[in-house]
């Protein structure tokens, strides 16, 4: 059985409202790479007749907005959708909260990273919690008996082929063919007939976070002026750095 984790993330098209201590998005959408993971899961269903379930994670203010993407996943062929409300927190706490639910699946897919989580640690943290292997940067998946064969991108056109024993968790980075299109009439009819099951999980506050070493934030300087002036100043700074 396959599970896909889909996160609600800020919609960068609509922009963000930046306040002193907080960044507030105008709107949320599903993380693009997580949607790619849904595509891979649906392909696996078509090829190997695997059951596919999807779980949407959203904070309080994105809780309704994740629905569309979950219904879209059902319209694409996913068998069951869940959603769970998890406040904005660290990947380690999310992993801790979800691990019980995810135990029963033998293939778990999610995006390698998310627009609000560039470190790409959620997949690895969940895998660690479940004590199963994790491979990130995946672009294709095939099932062979009790193993999974994946291609992992290495950059520069190179890739690695890995054979991994199930259960395992994979971070998806890209697609081999363009995403399926769901006509809006089909989406609306799924919205009328299908149901999203709401899950309740406990997010433990006293779970020990993985120590997270963040380098000190560098001084930021804004260079004003017309392009020529800016280029001049920039060149001077770079000259200073390389000499």
């Amino acid at each position: 059985m396959i599970c896909v984790i889909v996160r609600a993330v800020p919609d960068l098209v609509e922009g963000l409202e930046i306040e002193e201590r907080d960044v507030r998005p105008y709107r949320y959408i599903a993380n693009e790479l997580d949607e790619y993971a849904v595509e891979h899961a649906v392909s696996l269903k078509e090829k190997y007749n695997e059951r596919v379930e999807v779980i949407g994670i959203a904070s309080e203010d994105a809780y309704d907005e994740i629905d569309e993407s979950l219904y879209m996943a059902i319209a694409k062929g996913v068998d069951k959708a869940y959603k769970v409300k998890i406040p904005k927190t660290t990947s380690y706490k999310i992993a801790d909260a979800l691990s019980d639910f995810l135990k029963k699946f033998d293939i778990i897919l999610t995006g390698t990273l998310a627009v609000d989580e560039f470190y790409g640690v959620l997949g690895a943290t969940i895998a660690d919690k479940l004590d199963i292997p994790y491979v990130g940067g995946v672009r294709s998946i095939e099932i062979e008996g009790d193993s999974v064969i994946v291609k992992k991108e290495l950059g520069g056109g190179a890739y690695l082929v890995l054979k991994v024993k199930k259960p395992a968790l994979f971070g998806i980075l890209s697609l081999e063919k363009p995403p399926r299109y769901v006509p809006i009439s089909k989406l609306r009819s799924v919205m009328r007939s299908a149901e999203i099951e709401e899950l309740k999980v406990k997010v433990e506050e006293d779970v020990l976070d993985v120590r997270f070493l963040e380098p000190p934030k560098p001084e930021v300087e804004f260079i004003d002026g017309d392009p020529e002036e800016v280029a001049e100043k920039l060149a001077e700074i770079i000259r200073g750095l390389i000499s």
């Binding site: 609509e14 959408i29 995403p179 399926r180 299109y181 006509p183």
Partner: peptide, 20 residues
């Protein structure tokens, strides 16, 4: 045909119209 295979440039455009 839209439910079968849609050229990528078209599916992205239609998704944009749907979303934005």
């Amino acid at each position: 045909a839209l439910e079968r295979e849609v050229p990528e440039e078209l599916s992205r455009t239609l998704m944009n119209i749907m979303r934005y």
